[in-house]
Design a protein around this nucleic acid. Structure first.
Lengths: 147, 147
DNA sequence: CCTGCATCCTCTAGTCGCTAGAGGATCAAG
DNA sequence: CTTGATCCTCTAGCGACTAGAGGATGCAGG
């Protein structure tokens, strides 16, 4: 019965302690056994599950998608259709976001390049913000990438 | 005394009505005059101010930065140093984020390309998520772009 | 054995930038 | 005069945590 404290688990998966409690609360991680003094005692498998979650989060998958993905990982006999489509969806999301950010980047570059040293009244940054007509109109902020 | 209702203002700046009330609440927009029946009555200048805010938000500037930027726009005699550095900062943020997303994109592409038709047990998507060692280790999700 | 500090526990509230909805008043067109 | 759109305030919710209060426990050194 080699079990881990929440702190050890956190260190092992490089995740913060409160995050683990949070994942438990929302049902991504199962409730672990408790010691007599009510501390969480994890078995080593928890490290892999948590690492899975962490990796998926790093890739930007939303929690709900991760729930599905974990479920699939827990039931290897099911069809992996969902996993494929979630990955495809996430790829599309990321690609869209990159495109939008590239548009922002180019306008910001123009603003910064035109940067001024004087007073706000003559500032190109302020001016650009004040008049959208001054710039390529095709940017808009990406929706959040689930993070 | 050509004044606008909140709805007209919203339409004019292409922003939602509750968003305007929200901006007022946090002090980005000044409290407008009220009619006898307690409705907000905006003067046309409000459209420009709101458009300024909208544009800055589209570029990903956080509210606090916009506060500074608006302040500068209101006081054209001040130095625009802050505007320049905020823009530079924002550019850096966006560039960092693009780089991170590009790393995500390439891993997601690999996952999707290896996509499987079978059961979850053999699924490369699941497998990749389970074992971070299988992929280039250099991605991590961008912090939010104040979006 | 004792001290002291690290770690653990639960709970609540805060982050960011809105968005949604309840419950009600008012306006404008037909 | 009625109907439906718009307005008002207020509260709560989103996602994915993060921070902090206030207290209990565990562990290592002296």
């Amino acid at each position: 019965m080699m079990s881990l404290t929440i702190g050890k688990l956190a260190a092992a998966a490089d995740v913060k302690v409160p995050t683990i409690r949070f994942y438990e609360q929302i049902g991504l991680l199962p409730e672990p056994v408790r010691t007599v003094s009510d501390r969480r005692a994890y078995d080593p498998a928890a490290v892999r599950r948590l690492a899975f979650i962490k990796h998926a989060r790093q890739l930007g998958f939303p929690i709900e998608a991760i729930r599905t993905l974990l479920d699939l990982a827990d039931h290897p006999e099911r069809s992996c259709e969902d996993a494929n489509s979630l990955a495809q969806e996430q790829l599309t999301t990321v690609e869209t976001k990159i495109a939008q950010l590239e548009a922002l980047r180019s306008e910001l570059r123009r603003m910064v390049a035109a940067g001024c040293q004087g007073i706000a009244g003559d500032c190109r940054v302020i001016e650009t913000l004040a008049d959208h007509g001054l710039c390529g109109r095709d940017h808009s902020v990406p929706g959040r990438l689930s993070s």
